[in-house]
């Protein structure tokens, strides 16, 4: 069983900056972390490996500094890691990125399952996982909150929807995107982190994975970021309630009723 986990290094949410001209994230000099949702993808891959055997491979596309996020995956239990890094990949949108990752997954070979976080917290598109499935022509299931069964031919998963959940059976190989409810990511040990620092992480350029350079990078990407703007400031007011606990609770209850959040007595 071979599981590939696709991850992304993203700006730490307290450190993100947007280039006013290109409307893209300024990655130079920023604090970068492993996309929080991808931690759950890695954990699920490692848990499935621990239960059913096999290997877990982490892969990402990004600048050379993204290697750090891959080392974190290794510290968490992944067996191998690959970095797709080259100027030619720069500016790729979700479609071009998922194409490159699909080519990388094909190069890794013999994957039974691909797991992604449900979305990256920088772009928030949730498109790369489904895009990989489309490029590979594999079945996919998004927003997975539980893997119910897993064998060589089929995986049964529970996926979240607006009304509750669906139970979905997929023929392998397949692609999953996972939500935070699926597990609790482990905390790596000192020894596993130190071992990850010594690991070799191959860097693959487009030619290494057989990627068509006319399908990656900024120009071939069908998406154009026309405009970005900060969200409008939140409206609201702060209400300080004085008095002892009983008085304050009564005043709070009355205010919530007045605002329509409760029906009152």
């Amino acid at each position: 069983m071979r599981i590939v986990v696709c991850i992304k290094q993203v700006p730490a949410t307290d450190d993100a900056k947007i280039d006013p001209v290109t409307k893209r994230i300024v990655r130079e000099g920023m604090k970068a972390v492993l996309n929080p949702f991808d931690l759950y993808a890695v954990e699920e891959g490692v848990r499935l490996k621990e239960e059913f055997g096999g290997t877990v491979v982490a892969v990402t596309m990004g600048p050379p500094s993204a290697e750090k996020a891959l080392r974190e995956c290794l510290s968490l239990g992944c067996d191998e890691a690959y970095l797709l890094s080259d100027r030619a990949y720069g500016g790729s949108d979700t479609w071009a990125t998922s194409y490159a990752l699909a080519k990388g997954i094909a190069k890794i070979g013999d994957a039974d399952l691909v797991i992604c976080g449900k979305q990256a917290v920088d772009g928030d598109t949730a498109q790369v996982g489904p895009g990989i499935a489309a490029h590979l022509d594999w079945q996919q299931c998004t927003y997975v909150s539980k893997v119910l069964s897993f064998d060589c031919n089929e995986l049964v998963a529970e996926r979240m929807n607006e009304a509750g959940s669906d139970r979905v059976a997929l023929t392998l190989p397949a692609v999953l995107t996972v939500v935070k409810d699926i597990n609790q990511p482990r905390v790596p040990s000192l020894r596993s982190v130190l071992a990850s620092l010594e690991a070799e992480i191959p860097v693959w350029k487009p030619a290494d994975i057989g990627a068509d350079v006319d399908k990656i990078g900024l120009n071939p990407s069908p998406t154009r970021v026309v405009k970005t703007a900060p969200p409008p400031p939140r409206s609201g007011e702060t209400l300080h309630i004085s008095g002892d606990a009983a008085q304050a609770a009564a005043a709070l209850a009355a205010k919530l009723t007045q605002l329509g959040f409760t029906e009152g007595k």
Binding site: V187, S189, L190, R191, V193, L194
Partner: peptide, 12 residues
């Protein structure tokens, strides 16, 4: 803030 555990640092 995620840090290594004291005992694992001592042991290592």
């Amino acid at each position: 803030l995620l840090a290594f555990q004291g005992h694992e640092c001592i042991e290592y």
